[in-house]
Design a protein around this nucleic acid. Structure first.
Length: 569
RNA sequence: CGGGGCGUGGCGCAGCCCGGUUAGCGCGCCUGCUUUGGGAGCAGGAAGUCGGAGGUUCGAAUCCUCUCGCCCCGACCA
């Protein structure tokens, strides 16, 4: 490609709307342009990178025997209603309707569609196991699109689905896919880590997310030196007991006018926040539930939902809170509640003489003792675990890091095949539901994640494997006949050698070209100018390391092609 | 959805509080000449219904109302 004919619109200044490194650089280097919130054009340079990442993904999917297909973006509402996700997925499911008012979803993921294909086409256990995948545009009407393509409403994803006769077979493919993902991210030169994850709206029994380490990442991972690593939604751990031994005192109401938050009450009464019990009313699949946790901690709604076996758990609206506690929001407590399920976190068990809401306006109760003043059937783990908590596996205190979630794999089990009646016949002629796995990988997000880890003050520093071009030939003073001839020859020779090469043949000043070269970050830059030509040399420079050396023009193309070949993964 | 902020040539911004002629600046773009190893110089030029609608006023980018869009912080996920 010749730069003079290419659409590579670079910018000297940072765009005003972008915050993160990758977002700024993708805009400045002319990889993407925003069309509307969370929706992006991929310009030629950006698209080339997407294609490179896709190629790696395809190779690795093929390697484990996964077959590529293409499913439609649009799918009918009825399919989603079969599994209940038409409702469960909520507003994030991008819904459209046709001219007759019939409803459709723009696919955010394709469990329903792929299961529909398989239930119609696969009959026998002899056909199992197999894995299907596609690379396609996905739609999620995100609450808040963010960070350019990292959280977009329209994005590119590779999604794979495996079908099995039993759990053992699923486990085998799950492992193969997990290893495949490791190879993919290794080849993209990413510093990443697979961690245990919650299953969320997709469902299933086990899940891992692949996290690319990045301080501005949106996900928090809890880690322990023993090897344990899990997302904060999923992490288990022990919350250290801070309660000193105390004799139980007599519970008594206390006036707390207008004190509605843990912070208010703890300040007003002059007690530490852990000497309170946080009481939160939730609605789980339509039914109110009250959850209790120590005052300085937060409830993990994901865990609560899992414990209750509910698909939707959300904080109750004020009218439900009032109905349940007979008081406005802010004075909920466990004492005297009836006809509502109480879920109590383990952190509450050791507490003595603590403060709870009084279930009445402007009243709290102090010196409350769990078990004595209210009944606890069972203490559970519904706590959001943090980096300062203690590992359940080894007992050491844990740490945390932030990351970008580039992929997630799930063991789905029969969740979808059950609800969609997708079955095969086993050896005994008995109809069995397919055991399924699903495996997502955000292609566009991976591109952004690569930039997050591969840039410097001057621009992007692409790894060879995903760079839009492998070599940039920068002609200083392209007008000069000798420079022009030498550049053209090298350009042709490199292309003939199978190298992706960009020729900067613009008639701009050298400064402009050098700055642009740094910005778009092609791994190898070859500079050809009058100066070097006099002595028959050109200059080759590695973008990432800044390492540079002179090369005789004779045989330069072959030498450069060799270096490129070596750097390819 | 709650909180905060912003919409002025392609990009980055000033002007707005305190209304007043042809709406500025830097970058970019076009033409010509000179220049060419780290964002060149000179000369000339194109490009904006000041997000939109309504209102106040002799007069609105500026004040008021409504509306649309965008970004950031929190509840969602590849």
């Amino acid at each position: 490609m010749r730069w003079s004919k290419a659409l590579i619109p670079t910018h000297k200044e940072d765009p005003s709307h972008a915050e993160t490194t990758s977002h700024k650089l993708m805009l400045r280097a002319g990889l993407i342009r925003r069309l509307t919130s969370g929706v992006y054009n991929y310009l030629p340079l950006g698209w080339r990178v997407v294609r490179k990442v896709e190629a790696i993904v395809r190779e690795e999917m093929d390697r484990i025997g996964s077959q590529e297909l293409l499913m439609p973006v649009v799918s009918p509402a009825e399919l989603w209603q079969e599994t209940g996700r038409w409702d469960v997925y909520g507003k994030e499911l991008w819904r459209v309707h046709d001219r007759n008012g019939r409803e459709f979803a723009l696919g955010p993921t394709h469990e329903e569609v792929v299961t529909d294909i398989v239930r119609n086409e696969v009959r026998s256990y002899r056909q199992l196991p197999f894995t299907l995948y596609q690379i396609q545009t996905k739609f999620r009407d995100e609450i808040r699109p963010r960070f350019g393509v990292i959280r977009a409403r329209e994005f590119i994803m590779k999604d794979a689905y495996s079908f099995h006769r039993d759990e053992d077979s699923l486990n085998e493919t799950y492992r193969a896919m997990y290893d495949s993902y490791c190879r993919i991210f290794d080849r993209c030169n990413l510093n990443y880590r697979p961690v245990e994850a919650a299953t969320g709206a997709i469902g299933g029994s086990a899940s891992h997310e692949f996290m690319v380490l990045c301080d501005t990442g949106e996900s928090e991972v809890i880690v322990c030196e023993c090897g344990y690593a899990a997302t904060d939604e999923r992490a288990e751990g022990l919350i250290a007991d801070v309660m000193p031994p105390e004799d139980p005192l007599l519970a008594e109401p206390v006036d707390t006018p207008g004190m509605k938050t843990i912070e208010d009450v703890s300040e007003f009464l002059g007690v530490e926040s852990w000497r309170l019990i946080k009481t939160i009313v939730y609605v789980a699949d339509g039914d109110p539930v009250v959850a209790l946790i120590r005052g300085d901690r937060d409830i993990n709604e994901e865990k609560l939902a899992g414990l209750l076996g509910a698909s939707i758990v959300e904080a109750a609206p004020p009218d439900i809170v009032e109905k349940v506690t007979r008081a406005p929001v802010g004075f909920a407590g466990p004492i005297g509640l009836s006809e509502v399920r109480l879920v109590v976190d383990r952190s509450v068990e050791p507490l003595k003489n603590v403060v709870v809401g009084g279930n009445a306006v402007d009243v709290h109760i102090r010196n409350v003792n769990p078990g004595r003043d209210f009944v606890v059937d069972d203490y559970c783990d519904i706590a959001m675990i943090g980096k300062d908590d203690v590992c359940r596996q080894c007992g050491k205190s844990m740490g945390s890091f932030r990351g970008i979630e580039v992929s997630q794999v799930f063991k789905l089990g029969t969740k979808y095949s059950d609800s969609m009646k997708a079955t095969f016949l086993n050896e005994n002629g008995k109809a069995m539901p397919f055991v399924m796995g699903c495996y997502g990988l955000g292609i566009s997000r991976t591109v952004a994640a690569i930039i997050e880890q591969h840039s410097d003050g001057a621009g992007i520093t692409w790894p060879m494997s995903v760079a839009p071009f492998e070599v940039e030939v920068l002609a200083v003073k392209f007008k000069n006949e000798e420079v022009r001839a030498a550049s053209e020859r090298l350009y042709d020779d490199l292309r003939a050698a199978g190298v992706d090469v960009l020729l900067d043949d613009r008639h701009d000043s050298p400064g402009v070209k050098f700055k642009d070269a740094d910005l778009i970050g092609i791994p190898i830059r070859v500079t050809i100018g009058e100066r070097g030509l006099k002595s028959g040399i050109l200059e080759i420079r590695m973008r990432k390391t800044g390492e540079q050396r002179d090369l005789p023009i004779e045989g330069a193309a072959a030498e450069i092609a060799r270096i490129v070949e070596e750097a390819r993964v």
